[in-house]
């Protein structure tokens, strides 16, 4: 790991990270604020205005009555896919392929740092920044819940939700990162690095929309993560986390290996 490079990554991308941290924290706070302990009437009234298929697609159809369930379905059901995915796509592109494409990667390689070390640092920044995002969300979630509805949030389940959502996002991040390492051209990297997560997202959304499309969910990484199943204690957190963690490691190792051996098109 190269510390100067990690610091440069931080400096380059801190604004991007903060935008997502702030935006997602506000969303989480608003959703907790919308919770009505006496029932979820107000929210369901609002949802009834929307077409049923849309409500299903967004995963809002089965809203649990408790606060934790409320958060799980409204926040960890839809928003947790979309926003971090955008973050991963932008960051993944910035960390490697952008510099390869515009040639500035040559600056890094003219210093006594191996490709392995450089790519490891870049991937590490991806994972650390996602971890930071979820730590903040965890703190915000617990903090806002405690101040508005003392003792109502099931902290253990909320932790499990956050942990698996964090690992899921890291997996998506690593997919973007992987293609950023594979390709030398920003457009190709985006085609796959953004295309695949978006496909996962669409599969998951359409899969929830109608029974006939339910098979699509099988092909989506996002389906591994199911907020409501975690709430009901039906999900095997250890298994899910392991699958995500192994996928992350494989993609990371693959990124490094491919980058290590490939030809860089630097017009040196």
């Amino acid at each position: 790991m190269s510390l100067p490079l990690l610091l440069k990554d931080l400096k380059n991308n801190i604004i991007l990270l903060l935008v997502f941290v702030v935006m997602m924290s506000i969303y989480l706070s608003v959703i907790i604020f919308m919770y009505d302990p006496s029932g979820i009437g107000a929210f369901m009234d609002m949802m009834s205005l929307l077409p049923v298929s849309l409500v299903n697609a967004l995963g809002f159809s089965t809203v649990d009555a408790g606060l934790t369930g409320f958060i799980a379905s409204l926040y960890y059901g839809f928003l947790i896919y979309l926003f971090p995915m955008v973050y991963c796509i932008i960051l993944g592109n910035r960390l490697v392929v952008k510099w390869v494409d515009d040639g500035s990667f040559a600056c890094l390689l003219s210093t006594p740092n191996s490709r392995i070390k450089i790519i490891f640092t870049q991937g590490l920044y991806m994972l650390l920044s996602i971890m930071f995002l979820f730590i903040i969300l965890y703190i915000v979630g617990i903090g806002v819940s405690a101040s508005l509805f003392k003792g109502v949030l099931d902290v253990l389940i909320f932790s499990k939700l956050n942990l698996s959502a964090c690992l899921m996002t890291m997996t998506i991040g690593m997919i973007c990162f992987f293609f950023s390492c594979v390709f030398n051209n920003t457009n190709l990297s985006l085609l796959f690095g953004a295309g695949i997560p978006i496909l996962f997202f669409l599969f998951d959304m359409f899969g929830g929309m109608a029974q006939s499309l339910a098979f699509l969910k099988k092909y989506s990484l996002y389906s591994l993560f199911n907020g409501l199943a975690i709430i009901k204690g039906e999900a095997n957190i250890t298994m899910i986390s392991t699958v995500f963690a192994v996928t992350i490691l494989l993609l990371f190792a693959g990124s490094i290996a491919i980058f290590q051996y490939k030809r860089l098109p630097i017009q040196g």
Binding site: A106, T111, G268
Partner: peptide, 21 residues
Amino acid sequence: KAATIKKNLGYIPGELAFFEN
């Protein structure tokens, strides 16, 4: 041994590309 070599190597690229920002 690219990284080891770079300890004692200076390089001017033909196509100038730095971190523009």
